[in-house]
Design a protein around this nucleic acid. Sequence first.
DNA 1: ATAATGATTCGAAATCTATCGAATCAGATA
DNA 2: TATCTGATTCGATAGATTTCGAATCATTAT
Lengths: 204, 204
Amino acid sequence: MSLNESNPATQTPDTSISESTLSFFKALSDANRLRVVGLLAHRPHSVEELATILDLRPSTVSHHLSKLTGAGLAKAQVDGHYHVYSLHLDALHQHAKTLSSYEGLQELAEIDGVDDPFDRKVLSTFLDADGRIAQFPMKRKKFEVLLRYALRLFEDDGPWTEKEVNERLETLNDDTATLRRGLVDHGFMERETGGGEYRLLASN
Amino acid sequence: MSLNESNPATQTPDTSISESTLSFFKALSDANRLRVVGLLAHRPHSVEELATILDLRPSTVSHHLSKLTGAGLAKAQVDGHYHVYSLHLDALHQHAKTLSSYEGLQELAEIDGVDDPFDRKVLSTFLDADGRIAQFPMKRKKFEVLLRYALRLFEDDGPWTEKEVNERLETLNDDTATLRRGLVDHGFMERETGGGEYRLLASN
DNA sequence: ATAATGATTCGAAATCTATCGAATCAGATA
DNA sequence: TATCTGATTCGATAGATTTCGAATCATTAT
């Protein structure tokens, strides 16, 4: 029993992974594009040249080049009506470094859709490999990062009973009371005065 | 006018690129597989665990893992009836190095279907980026590597007239006489006594 | 201005890939 | 031995990718 199963809010698709890493590998996952990179490593080439060497139509080469530039691997320099493409080494070296470092690799499994570097850092510190909260941080600011992380369990329309809230929070940590009180005290949720049900506050 | 156009022998498909490089990038060109790598970078996981975390069926995860192991990125350790997968860092570091070094990148455009390391070295030295012979080596052994490279222009059934032979060799170097004589003198081709046409000798 | 050339975009066809469920296989357990 | 559980393999399907040719753009040449 883990995250992601009966819970609608955890059905997050593959929006994880620094989008750029994926497009980087996708760009290099085709034989012809690898050859293009090899050719550009020798010297810059125009689209037509590449088309002749690779025995492909210019439109096809253009398509490949757009994937490479999209991944930051190549850049075009317009000269006359030739578009001369050359390699852009920065992206290559950066991703090569990711592959060489252990931390870089671990970040590939980082939490979905979290862009802020501070948030990523906090989450990678306090979540275990299964995405559960391993330990609560002392600092208020870090605790709030975890609370925002917990909010993704409540993306459907509320309100929810305390029992429902607890069930969802339990996928993150057994100490549901701390989490539930945290959500209220830090202004992410409110408890209705009437039935005592919970709902989200705006701004989320 | 370059290699690869009206010539049947140059219609070589994408058999270039150290097959392993391509499968490496293909293995990492999927969001879920990247997440698997990230998870394995934290600690080894069983198929079932991964399936739960990623919210995929075990059969799907199995499929992904077979791609990763096929690329040398992961390896399974059978324990009980659990298959515990862990990262295999060697492949990662090796390919990361390819990406960081200029020569490594250039080899991505290396010549189709040449496996022998010595041959690859010679060809990368004496061919230009378009696959033409930039210069003739002095050493007999290296010259023969180029002659074997030239043989791929004659994969259809001969014989060919001297004019036809020259036309094909011209795609490699303007000095067709040197190449043509080389092919004969080193025993790759023979000239018929009758009509003077050229044909291949066996062993090729 | 008109034509020509190289590049890109668009739409369509063929191929490949990710994913699932069902069937099978292999240890472990009763 | 029979059964259960986790892993793999197989077949099917929906979706993505590669590739082409035709149409369009932009820039140079006539």
